[in-house]
């Protein structure tokens, strides 16, 4: 299992795992650039990579690989997941929207997918500020937003920058609706109660009522003293699925495992509905959730900040409806 600071380190580590430790597959990663580097290494060596934290659509499209599977949801799934909540609240059609976008690959990919979604539903991205990745103070951006008076503010930021933005947005007490196209549970935990607000997408949350989720949360909390966040779910689920595939095929051979997943078996992924890896781009097709801040008087502990919305797509709808379509994000696997 690996996580790396940059693509060069990622590919060195991947080479080492394969050459020295002779692993059958690699699970992990958070940055799309590093994910791509790992995909290239596994492809050369005929091994598998299960991505649990890289979101960019490009990794499932132009940069896709037959040897790479995506447990982490793609930017499209995040955007369409939370987008449905914005649409429901009438915040997109005919509205002017302010984008705050992290100025690197992930943020720009998310902004591209998000802009397409907004425009397809009658909205306009009237302002967009590219935020350098080392920015920690958002007061100047918040003043600009106040001057612009948008109908909705969308964060295409990542990690600690979301925490900082949310804390400082609350500090300035502005009342424009806001939210984001990308999110992690830990970000809300880091903001703390009273600071967290807005509408956000999430791939998994520890309050989900699914049986598998409950058992995982109980075991994780017992061991680490706090509930798992969505990245922990990704790593656990990937490991579980790989173990199941190896047991079912009685093999660690990459081709055998690809063959197993390419039949699109239904998989228990600790959510309400089962998921499956889509054959054409190896994306885990799964339900997503939206969440908002829980009213302060209902909070049970410091981890209980979020009110989980209904699953997206709704009951009875096709899970693929939020995944990138072939036209949006074509993937061609190089020949085996």
């Amino acid at each position: 299992m690996e996580d790396s600071v940059n693509p060069a380190t990622a590919s060195t580590k991947a080479e080492r795992y394969i050459k020295r430790d002779n692993v059958a597959c690699i699970i992990g990663e958070i940055s799309s650039a590093s994910g791509l580097a790992i995909a290239q290494v596994v492809e050369r060596n005929n091994k598998l990579f299960f991505n649990t934290g890289c979101n960019s659509d490009a990794l499932r499209g132009s940069d896709c690989s037959r040897f790479m599977y995506h447990v982490e949801a793609s930017n499209s799934q995040y955007v369409k997941g939370v987008g449905s909540a914005f649409l429901r609240d009438g915040l997109i059609d005919g509205k002017k929207i302010y984008f705050l976008t992290a100025d690197y690959a992930y943020g720009q990919d998310l902004s591209r997918v998000g802009k397409k979604y907004v425009e397809a539903h009658g909205g306009e991205v009237a302002w967009e500020d590219l935020v350098p990745t080392d920015s920690t103070d958002f007061s100047a951006y918040i003043l600009k937003i106040r001057q612009a008076r948008p109908d909705l503010i969308i964060s295409n930021l990542a990690g600690n920058q979301i925490t900082n933005f949310v804390k400082q947005y609350t500090e300035y007490g502005l009342d424009f609706p806001y939210g984001g196209f990308g999110f992690d549970t830990a970000v809300a935990w880091g903001a703390g109660k009273g600071n967290f607000g807005g509408e956000w997408p999430v791939a998994w949350h520890h309050n989900l009522p699914a049986e598998g989720a409950k058992a995982f949360v109980a075991a994780f909390t017992k061991k680490y003293g706090k509930p798992p966040e969505n990245q922990a779910w990704g790593d656990y689920t990937a490991t579980k699925l790989v173990a199941e595939a190896m047991t079912a095929t009685n093999s660690t051979d990459s081709e055998a495992l690809i063959g197993y997943f390419d039949d699109e078996p239904k998989l228990d992924i600790l959510k309400g509905r089962q998921g499956y890896f889509r054959k054409r781009d190896h994306q885990l097709i799964q339900e997503m959730y939206t969440m908002t801040a829980k009213p302060l008087d209902q909070l049970e502990d410091e981890w209980d900040l979020m009110l989980l919305g209904d699953a997206v797509p709704g009951e009875g709808e096709d899970l693929e409806s939020i995944a990138p379509t072939e036209e949006e994000n074509a993937c061609t696997f190089s020949a085996a």
């Binding site: 003043l143 500090e171 300035y172 970000v187 935990w189 880091g190 903001a191 703390g192 109660k193 600071n195």
Partner: peptide, 21 residues
């Protein structure tokens, strides 16, 4: 993961001076 912490109650809020916040 970041540790949660908020502005203490007594120091929350904004000051409006003319058009400035």
């Amino acid at each position: 993961t970041p540790r949660p912490f908020s502005i203490p109650e007594a120091l929350r809020g904004q000051i409006l001076i003319g058009d400035f916040i």
